[in-house]
Design a protein around this nucleic acid. Structure first.
Length: 682
DNA sequence: ATGATAACAGTTTTT
DNA sequence: CTGTTATCAT
């Protein structure tokens, strides 16, 4: 048992050995967090705790898989039962599969993703921006606010509308037995809250709970955890308040800041020894984060020595910036540095373009991490919809997606007619088209389309039958029957789409091989919560957003776009302390060398904008006195002004150039750029 | 029903 | 400038 803890330092050891009661492990960046909690899990099990009594929750499948692997490798093969180690959402899914009947719903529900959700909201007919409505509904659900309460609470007319859309949305997804990502948690909470017996039983079952990335939990996840540990208080949370970067998505940094108050007698252990970066890098990170007020306080110290000084590049524009960085990286690679140890980070994805162009010019191979998710691609979702329909023909939601894919001559109007007619008969679309095809033909305009639909229904039934007989060849049969690849062949970007489809077919076959006795439902459930785990390519450097870089590390790191307005972003809905934490996350990804870059101007949203240096540069001690925040101007867009030569005009734009402000002014139709000091307000 | 053009909006996105 | 969506001919 002692052996298990051998590789840990003193603090880590104490953390791993503290088994009972609430425990907060404040794990700074690069402090061996994963090692500590996987060892702790291994220690628990080796101390005789039944693996069935443990629950370890993470945010990503990637983290869950990595931790499982590491914990099991410490233990070797001598465990009786695999410990439950999964994402919050997967836990919700498992719980609902057993318990959703308590709220009178069937457990063959289908999980929808954010795009599905938006499509439903759109079809409900609502003039407000869809993403606003979707995120507000999400907010309500995560605050356990029902549509009725939302309606009652709303004062503004727009919020009345949102509340009513929320109500219709809930009715729709219940009717279609759908479950969105938020429901996986909110319905789980609801059942635990309304059924004391189930709550007690569940809490008893999971007697030792661990939570990774605790700083990213939201209010609902906090409440859920409270329920889960209500019978024992054996909750160990691991996180770093300085790395809380998902506040805009509902994560509540208070959960970690106030853990000691919320869980009385909590033990707190700080892991401040950093095994990743040089002291120069950590000093920079510490300098920056010390400007934040809302934090528990922590100072990282390197075991690696001082290292190289931070490099700062100031560029005229983004093209120069990209060329300089491209050339530097090229030299690094030529000197023997492996491309997978180099990365470029940016605050907003829009900055990737100029960098990509620069890397192409300087012939540096790169891979963009993040971007469009594999399972969110239209072609993949179409095939998943086919599989869902075959698994459950009454899944109207999926049916609507593929009824005209490939094109069968069924447009929006026909679909609406069919849906209404089916609804009248109290049947699913599939049942309606199958059993009442004569009635259905009234909804479809052309003869050709009717023939197509008949064929479609026949084929779906054929495949459903086939499902019971053979599984492995099933995917080939799907392709032979519906010719999906043929359809995508004709569409733009066909090569990429076909490659994706082939990859998906491969994943299906792999799943069948790994789980020979699993059925189609198991596969669909498995992939519903899966996002692709971007592999870091050995042959290429990585470029990605700072958010996408969390948890990763690189020997040579470049952070670009250190400009006010770009990083930090300032304006509506931006939080300067969270921006600073993003800076902290970015800097602490670097192991050996860190380069920060600034561009004096950028081409963005179709126009060139002049930019001043990010305040973060001066805050972390890179670039002293770079900030002129005191220096402001009273001119604003729309002001009437007078110029000695050009006369009266109206301000169109205010731009900051070094220490002056340049105004774009409309003088009776002629636009001119003029320094602010040459005009007077009137 | 479908494909072409106009109008519009553009921070980050673990499930 | 780009990618997405609404609208309008065909």
């Amino acid at each position: 048992m002692k052996k298990i803890l051998n590789e840990l330092n003193e603090e880590q050891k104490i953390a791993a050995k503290t088994v009972d009661g609430p425990l907060l492990i404040l794990a700074g960046a690069g402090s061996g967090k994963t090692k500590t909690i996987t060892t702790r899990l291994a220690y628990l099990l080796s101390a005789g705790i039944d693996p069935a009594n443990t629950l370890t929750l993470t945010f990503t499948n990637k983290a869950a898989n990595e931790m499982r692997e590491r914990a099991l490798s410490i233990l070797g093969s001598n465990i009786s039962y695999p410990p439950l180690l999964c994402t919050f959402h997967k836990f919700g899914l498992l719980f609902l599969k057993f318990n959703i009947d308590k709220i009178n719903r069937k457990n063959n529900f289908v999980i929808i993703d954010t795009n599905d959700k938006k499509r439903i909201i759109k079809n409900l007919g609502c003039d407000l921006p869809i993403s606003l409505v979707a995120s507000e509904i999400s907010r309500y659900k995560n605050s356990l606010i029902s549509p009725e309460i939302a309606e009652a609470k709303s004062i503004q007319p727009n919020y009345k509308i949102i509340a009513s859309v929320y109500k219709q949305y809930e009715e729709y997804i219940e009717k279609n037995n759908l479950v969105d990502f938020d429901d996986l948690l909110s319905l789980t909470y609801k059942i635990l809250d309304e059924n004391d017996d189930i709550c007690k039983q569940t809490s008893d079952r999971y007697h030792y709970i661990m939570v990774d990335e605790y700083q990213d939990t939201n209010d609902l996840q906090y409440k859920l955890l409270k329920k889960l540990c209500s019978n024992h208080q054996n909750i160990c949370v691991v996180g770093d308040d300085d790395q809380s970067i998902y506040g805009w998505r509902g994560a509540n940094i208070k959960n970690i800041l106030e853990f000691p108050e919320e869980f009385p007698n909590a033990k707190i252990i700080k892991l401040e020894k950093n095994y990743r970066s040089t002291n120069q890098i950590l000093k920079t990170a510490n300098n920056l984060i010390e400007h934040n007020r809302g934090r528990l306080g922590k100072k990282l110290e390197s075991i690696k020595g001082d290292g190289k000084e931070i490099d700062f590049i100031e560029c005229e524009n983004e093209t120069v910036e990209a060329n300089i960085i491209g050339n530097r990286i090229k030299k690094l690679i030529e000197s023997g540095v492996k491309p997978q140890n180099i990365a470029i980070l940016y605050r907003i994805n829009a900055l990737s373009r100029s960098i990509e162009e620069g890397l192409n010019r300087t012939q540096v191979p790169y891979k963009m991490v993040g971007g469009v998710k594999f399972y969110e691609r239209a072609e993949i979702k179409d095939i998943i919809s086919y599989l869902r329909i075959i698994a459950n023909p009454n899944d109207d939601f999926s049916f609507k997606r593929i009824i005209n894919r490939p094109k069968r001559g069924i447009g929006k109007i026909s679909i609406n007619k069919i849906v209404k007619a089916a609804y009248k008969q109290k049947q699913s679309i599939f049942q309606f088209l199958d059993k009442n095809i004569n009635l259905a033909t009234k909804s479809i305009s052309s003869k050709k389309s009717i023939v197509e639909i008949k064929k479609f229904i026949k084929n779906l039934k054929k495949l459903k039958k086939e499902l019971n007989t053979s599984t492995y060849e099933f995917i080939d049969l799907l392709e032979e029957t519906f010719h999906l690849k043929e359809y995508y062949q004709k569409l733009p970007d066909s090569i990429e789409k076909i490659a994706n489809i082939d990859e998906f077919y491969g994943l299906f076959r792999d799943f069948i091989i790994v789980h020979p006795e699993a059925n189609l439902d198991d596969f669909l459930n498995d992939i519903a919560l899966q996002s692709d785990q971007d592999q870091i390519d050995k042959e290429s450097i990585s470029i990605m957003s700072i958010h996408a870089s969390k948890g990763l590390e690189f020997d040579y790191l470049f952070v670009i776009g250190l400009e006010e307005g770009f990083f930090p972003i300032n304006g509506d809905g931006s939080d300067i302390e969270e921006e600073r934490r993003l800076g902290y996350v970015a800097i602490t990804r670097a192991k050996k060398e860190l380069t920060l870059s600034h561009s004096n101007s950028r081409f963005y949203k179709g126009r060139r904008t002049n930019l001043s240096k990010s305040r973060f540069l001066s805050e972390c001690g890179i670039c002293k006195g770079s900030l002129n925040l005191e220096k402001t101007t009273t001119f604003k867009k729309g002001d009437l002004i007078k110029h000695k030569i050009f006369g009266m005009g109206r301000v169109l734009e205010v731009n900051k150039i070094k220490r002056e402000f340049k105004l774009k002014i409309n003088f009776g139709g002629t636009k001119r750029d003029i320094l602010a000091s040459f005009v007077e307000k009137i």
